[in-house]
Design a protein around this nucleic acid. Sequence first.
DNA 1: TAGATTGTTAATCGATTAACAATC
DNA 2: TAGATTGTTAATCGATTAACAATC
Lengths: 222, 222
Amino acid sequence: MPKKFMSFLKESAPKIPQPVIRRLPKYLVHVQELREEDVVWASSQQIAEALGLTSSTVRQDLSHLDLSGISKRGYETEQLELVLRQVLGADIVHRVVIVGAGNLGRSLAEHGAFTQRGFEICGLFDQEPSLFGRQVGDVKVMSIDSFCDVCRDTDVDIGLIAVPSSAAQGVADLMVQCGIRAILNLAYKHIQVPQGVHLVDARIIESLQELAYSLGKNRIPS
Amino acid sequence: MPKKFMSFLKESAPKIPQPVIRRLPKYLVHVQELREEDVVWASSQQIAEALGLTSSTVRQDLSHLDLSGISKRGYETEQLELVLRQVLGADIVHRVVIVGAGNLGRSLAEHGAFTQRGFEICGLFDQEPSLFGRQVGDVKVMSIDSFCDVCRDTDVDIGLIAVPSSAAQGVADLMVQCGIRAILNLAYKHIQVPQGVHLVDARIIESLQELAYSLGKNRIPS
DNA sequence: TAGATTGTTAATCGATTAACAATC
DNA sequence: TAGATTGTTAATCGATTAACAATC
């Protein structure tokens, strides 16, 4: 198959395995650091070492991208950053709405790191009338009742669930109903979405529990 | 091998595979819901359906726990919750310190869901003098300079990194130096820790990028 | 009892790692 | 050129799924 067509395929029918996709942000962060240090080339071995992977994994992962390394030098950091940004959508702005204006929701709405990375908060919603109109970052808290209308007027890419776990499924249903096809769930709750809607769990409490397991403090001593 | 000794083994030398551990919190949340609805028995099939798994996976997963199901009925929800809580350390209190008292760090310190789940915030630290003494949830912001002293006085289980990515590695080093052996990293940065220290990444921005990838908005159209 | 469901073994699937020819 | 490093194929490893005897 001609190389040109191969690259076309990679762009139009990308079937990058999930474990690889989950590592791509790591590569992006690292390569951006390298570029800040004016490093022009990075070998799979060097990248692997910095990220706690094997060089084999790095080469396999990067082979899914529209990019070529060069023998004896490795990968050009500028090109690598470019391609990673492209794949991860880091070079366009994604519009994010947050439902839940409690501590967590508000702090995420104000969190500069999102905007810096191209995730623009375009709406913050809650149920609680006393919060309506309160300025948080660049947006004001709006009533959840206006959620669908706002989604209709704005082109929303990603919905963020920051409500208590008991309300999480309902919010997800609402988001799906309003046409949102990508959801990040911060609640401690398994959520069901229809086929075609992408759901990722933030797993903060789950992560703490995983750490608690690894500490094994309440294991019966032998 | 006698059954009694098997169960002893499971408790003293638990080698539950990581993918299983990551699913255990899901089971716990679900079984707690079932118990609120006074459901006494749950079959692997029912659990699988609720959590988007196969019944085979559920049975395999639960076989790592010190628990037996009963043919024709399934698993007793009370016993299942008990065992899951035990394994995930949800029945004892873990002490958590947060470094970084910005929006995110403060909101986590105030986040009721942590305390509810047995993670007690016992310290919140920052570099910025203007924040010192500020009351956030149950704690006051302290100087990062006092971090090691506080860790020495308190029995800290888990350290939470909520600083900008450029400072994250330094904070991790400090935590390790002060004897913390379990770290949850909320920064968008790969962090290196010595062997024996447990690190979990919260991956919030990474999750947004994963969703951005799945939306594929900036893919070259065919 | 008959049928449903467990616990476990075997089969499949997919991800990671190793190896090595190609190449710069 | 000689040596390092890629890209890719093959081997290994581990996780998930299927199957089924045991059992309630």
